[in-house]
């Protein structure tokens, strides 16, 4: 098991009363699963993602990621778990503007003190079709290109599990398609577990499982036998 939660609850203190954002969520995600978390705005999707990835701590309940009890760890210990097991792709890309595309991808490799960070980063950027753009800075790249750099960076640390928060949310349909293809292709190639939060039905339909939240509660957890798995490598590697 890659990831399990038990009675995961998150409440925040508002002025008058405590507000429950997530209530008693229990789920299990196996290695190499692809899971989409869906739901309306404010249903608690992003909160669940942040708890699963150890970016935040639950008010009560447990999260075990790769056997590590995230709910018991402090900030720095969770950071270690993230460095070791987790990759991220965000809606707003979150590239470091101070670093070139290549440097952005090298960063997690360097943090893990692996060998030849530059070579590995080049390979990944080549895979996402950005060999020509190695030395461009984020503000010199289009949205689609930035997200491809972010994907290359997410896979650079060879994560066991990849969390994606609305990865297509800031992109047009064509670019969104390419990004989806790219994520699933790399995911399959590297045997990564994938957990993504999305509004995008096309994206959700590509996952093996869809977990639906409503008002902070898990209301549906469906395995999708017909998940569209086939990669569209040619188009993903093309120029956007």
């Amino acid at each position: 098991m890659m990831l399990t939660t038990k009675n995961l609850t998150k409440t925040v203190n508002s002025q008058e009363h405590d507000l429950t954002i997530l209530s008693q969520v229990s789920l299990t995600i196996n290695e190499q699963d692809t899971v989409a978390i869906v739901g309306a705005s404010g249903s608690g999707k992003s909160t669940l993602l942040s708890l699963l990835a150890g970016l935040d701590v639950p008010t009560s309940g447990q999260v075990m990621l790769a056997g590590k009890p995230l709910h018991e760890l402090n900030e720095d210990q969770r950071a270690l778990v993230r460095a070791q097991y987790v990759g991220f792709v965000f809606q707003s890309f979150h590239l470091l503007p101070g670093l070139s595309a290549l440097e952005n991808v090298m960063l997690p490799i360097e943090l893990k003190e692996q060998k030849n960070p530059e070579q590995q980063a080049r390979q990944l950027l080549e895979q996402v079709g950005l060999l020509e753009r190695l030395h461009h800075y984020p503000n010199q790249l289009s949205g689609g290109e930035q997200q491809r750099v972010a994907i290359a960076r997410a896979f650079a640390s060879e994560p066991k599990i990849l969390f994606a928060d609305e990865p297509t949310g800031n992109l047009d349909t064509a670019n969104g398609e390419k990004i989806i293809d790219l994520i699933f292709e790399l995911n399959q190639q590297l045997g990564t577990t994938l957990v993504l939060v999305t509004h995008d039905d096309r994206l959700a339909s590509r996952c093996q499982r869809v977990v639906r939240l409503e008002a902070g509660e898990l209301v549906d957890d469906t395995a999708q036998e017909k998940a569209v798995q086939e990669p569209h490598l040619e188009s993903a590697a093309g120029h956007s």
Partner: peptide
């Protein structure tokens, strides 16, 4: 936790790159 982490040298290289940029 078994992985080793970026020590001073890695961070200062990064710091220098970020400073330049």
């Amino acid at each position: 936790m078994s992985i080793s982490h970026a020590k001073g040298s890695g961070t200062s290289g990064l710091a220098w790159r970020i400073f330049r940029r």
